[in-house]
């Protein structure tokens, strides 16, 4: 009797706005046209990939105060792209990098639950924090968090998002014409969180999504604080970690073959 082979999980990431992407190559296409995303996603689905992956960019890079355009400049927002891809694929997971620094949990939990509904249970969230006041100046509060607090906020953010996703029972919608009641019970979506970063309460307004909760992943687990963002016991299924440098001891047991080559940075397209 042979041991079943472990199944390789494959994701495809697209479109870094950095020097890795060769925009001047004769075969290079647009980084923003939907045709580019559709092609990449449908090709990944043809290859039976588990998911399609988009990074996040919130600002244009500058060098000495000037935008530098040696690399690709400009990119679309993550969620609309994933939503559009949902309509032209059937099985491919849709993982978006979305920051827990400038977003609000109620808003982002709604968007991800909605993507999960629209895609039939294919939504995933790569949680990141944003790193500096330079990015923050695009947002109301600017660079409002120091380095440590951005992880404190992210932990609260993720916990709150989870509470929101869990706030509707799976059988909440009865659509009972005989009783004239849409809901089985009236108390759906109840949430409340009173922490240092968020003090919110109310009713979540998106019914429970096909996956219950979109899959949560975390990139760049190179820093201890970053890893702590999702402090799950190893034995617990449920969280993906996308290590920046999966060297020995971090990746489980890199045994030959890839060695250094596997120590690739993940999700470099920021």
């Amino acid at each position: 009797m042979t041991t079943p082979r472990k199944q390789i999980i494959l994701g495809h990431y697209v479109g870094g706005v950095n020097h890795h992407t060769l925009w001047s190559h004769p075969r290079a296409g647009s980084q923003i046209d939907f045709a580019s995303f559709r092609h990449a996603a449908q090709t990944a689905e043809r290859g039976k990939f588990d998911f399609f992956f988009l990074a996040e960019g919130l600002i244009l890079r500058e060098r000495l105060g000037q935008i530098f355009d040696q690399d690709v400049v400009g990119r679309p927002d993550t969620l609309p792209v994933l939503t559009a891809i949902a309509a032209v694929t059937e099985h491919l997971g849709l993982v978006g990098t979305l920051n827990a620094t400038f977003n609000e949990p109620y808003e982002l939990a709604r968007q991800l639950a909605s993507l999960d509904h629209l895609s039939g249970g294919r939504a995933g969230w790569n949680v990141v924090t944003s790193f500096d006041a330079f990015t923050g100046q695009n947002f109301r509060r600017g660079g409002f968090l120091n380095r440590d607090d951005r992880y404190v906020r992210a932990q609260e953010f993720v916990a709150l998002a989870r509470q929101l996703w869990d706030s509707w029972p799976a059988d909440a919608i009865a659509a009972d014409t005989a009783r004239g009641r849409f809901l089985r019970t009236a108390d759906v979506g109840v949430f409340g969180h009173h922490g240092h970063q968020f003090d919110v309460s109310g009713h979540f307004n998106v019914p429970r999504s096909p996956q219950g909760r979109p899959v949560v992943l975390q990139a760049g687990a190179g820093s201890h604080r970053g890893r702590d963002l999702l402090p799950v016991p190893r034995a617990r299924a449920g969280t993906g970690v996308l290590p920046r440098h999966p060297g020995p001891g971090r990746a489980r047991r890199p045994t030959g073959g890839l060695g250094e080559a596997a120590a690739g940075r993940l999700v470099r397209p920021r």
């Binding site: 999980i9 992956f53 999966p246 073959g257």
Partner: peptide, 18 residues
């Protein structure tokens, strides 16, 4: 050999690199 569970693969070419 349990080095990882899989990979996220990218390319230097968008969109046809994969």
């Amino acid at each position: 050999n349990d080095g990882s569970d899989g990979f996220i693969v990218g390319s230097h070419l968008t969109p046809g690199g994969i």
